[in-house]
Design a protein around this nucleic acid. Structure first.
Lengths: 336, 336
DNA sequence: CTGTTAGCGCTTTCAG
DNA sequence: CTGAAAGCGCTAACAG
């Protein structure tokens, strides 16, 4: 007598003195079952610790309740986990489970990952990049519903959800303008990413709306780290008519800006207001004074991706794959 | 004629003029197949884009190649993703795929998650906590191989992998001693976690090994945030014989220590050396001078968990579940 | 080396 | 309301 075999629907059918069909029905909460019978069957199931085998159900129904989640690289940014969290929470709420594969930016792995997911018959695929960027994907993705998170394909043939960089840049700048500032410096990332381009557009838009002319002297493209922020502030403050407020591409640059301002004996926000981007708690909440900053909608993007995938069926072949932009909330602290 | 049905092994068998058995054999790289036949079959498979259905294989073989990964809460610490990365990379290397469920510390979700994984017949379960701690788990886990990451059960009945806090505390302190310091302050977390208790033990051990008497005045239990670090340094430096080196429970406290030292016009490391814990890049690499700190083996723990699960079969009912402690490497920068 | 034949455990008509 | 029967797509003997 080998190790105890798996308890099947047959076993419990026999013990209950009913047919397997009936057992299957109570298992799936089908309505047409005699309450008495149902109770009996359930009791026996509980007693023997019966557990349906997912593989068998899947083979029969062709429903896996799985969603593939592929990332280019999980690690890079600390808040990127929020995308996973958002997706995971939403998936669980919808009775779906997440299959996770990290490609480490390796095209071969990506290809294999896609293949694996196709073989598993996942119900949809989420491809998440760790920062807002255009991507190229093997066409295979098209074989089933897919959503891009924090990235998009140039030809827009795949649905995608990204942060609304322009509005965020505009909101950040407008916040500074509302505080009475007219000379607002923008320390931008010197790489032409969607984030840099979008936020700059938003910055100019806010300026225009307030009737403030754009001054190229106030724009500082730099390396997106603390040093870049430090150098930019030095440069900015050397000008004849220096900015009284500074909008930084990210919190790390803002960190450098704080250091530069301190070295220049300038008080925040009294002498110069500073506004960051990313809301990296470790920086934003711990800087003195607390850094006012914009928050990326990572959790919301992960959530949206799942919701789109789950609801997609009802939309039946929508003409254009949606290209959604999610708002970046302002996190107000004491630096403006 | 409905939407094209899935291409099965039967289809390709027919097209190739062979039996399904043969097709199955080439699919599984079985040795006993005529090279000619194999090529033919493979060609046809490629041509029609055949893809084996995982569910069918699983139902038949009872092998899922899945490993469940359960976390208590993904978000809290930014470096926690490294555990996932380590596990994911190792899993992929072993042909296993990860099923991810985040419980948000909800016992009901945990229970349901376990149930789901059992139904899926995962080959093993990893339960990862987001910081080193004892945990309680429903016994269900015992039904299949499980590994605890960054946590353990009090009775040690489940294998677990955690950071070697004692050795880390000893190494950190010894590093300071080597630099010639005799008065070494330890700003510890004021909660009695394994990390706090272990590192303190290591601190005392290193002191003892160097023949330096332990001075309770140099021990500062505090809230593990920048403010706690700031306050501690103020207190420590007020003493008649103040420490010339400070070991901080984490980088955030070290961040506060830097601020306090700056306010006291004390230079790092010239006047006072500072050593942190966690190697949170955003802090450690950006502080001036760069913070020397200890690194938690997150990636390695995730990796170890998978390797244990995969290799476990060969160990055949080992008497005691292993309780592994992984080393925390020292990351040398300029603060000591 | 290869075709045939049983099922894996479950769902789903189809008759009662 | 319920039992019986037919597979889902694949693997694994078992005879050739």
């Amino acid at each position: 007598m080998p190790g105890k075999a798996h308890v099947t629907i047959q076993d419990i059918a026999r013990k209950a003195g009913v047919g397997v069909g009936t057992v299957s029905r109570v298992l799936n909460d089908a309505p047409n079952v005699n309450p008495q019978t149902r109770q009996l069957v359930q009791a026996i199931m509980a007693e023997v610790g019966y557990r349906p085998r997912t593989a068998a159900q899947t083979l029969r129904t062709h429903k896996t309740h799985e969603i593939g989640f592929i990332t280019d690289e999980i690690a890079s940014t600390p808040f990127a986990v929020d995308v996973i969290r958002g997706a995971q929470d939403a998936a669980w709420a919808h009775g779906k489970i997440l299959i996770l594969i990290n490609t480490n930016r390796n095209p071969d792995v990506l290809h294999a990952a896609l293949e694996t997911m196709l073989e598993r018959q996942v119900e949809g695929i989420i491809y998440a990049a760790m920062f807002h960027q255009p991507v190229q994907l093997p066409i295979t993705v098209c074989e089933l519903p897919a959503v891009l998170v924090d990235c998009y394909v140039e030809d827009r043939t795949l649905p995608s959800v990204v942060p609304d960089e322009v509005t965020a840049g505009r909101l950040a700048t407008a916040t500074l303008i509302e505080r009475g500032h007219r000379r607002i410096g923008f320390i931008n990332n010197n790489e032409a990413t969607p984030a840099a381009v979008g936020r700059l557009a938003g910055y100019r838009q806010a300026l225009a709306e307030a009737g403030i002319p754009f001054d190229p002297l106030l724009l500082c493209p730099e390396a997106s780290d603390p040093d870049g922020g430090y150098r930019s502030v030095q440069r900015l403050r050397q000008q004849p008519d220096p900015p009284t407020a500074i909008f930084c591409f990210n919190d790390r640059m803002a960190m450098g800006a704080y250091a530069a301002l301190r070295d220049l004996k300038l008080a925040i926000p009294h002498d110069v207001a500073v506004l960051g981007f990313d809301n990296q708690e470790i920086i934003a909440a711990n800087l003195r004074p607390g850094l006012t900053t914009m928050q990326l909608p990572h959790y919301a993007m992960g959530q949206w991706a799942i919701q789109y995938l789950v609801g997609e069926a009802s939309e039946a072949e929508n003409s254009h794959p949606p290209q959604v932009q999610l708002a970046c909330p302002l996190v107000l602290r004491e630096s403006v």
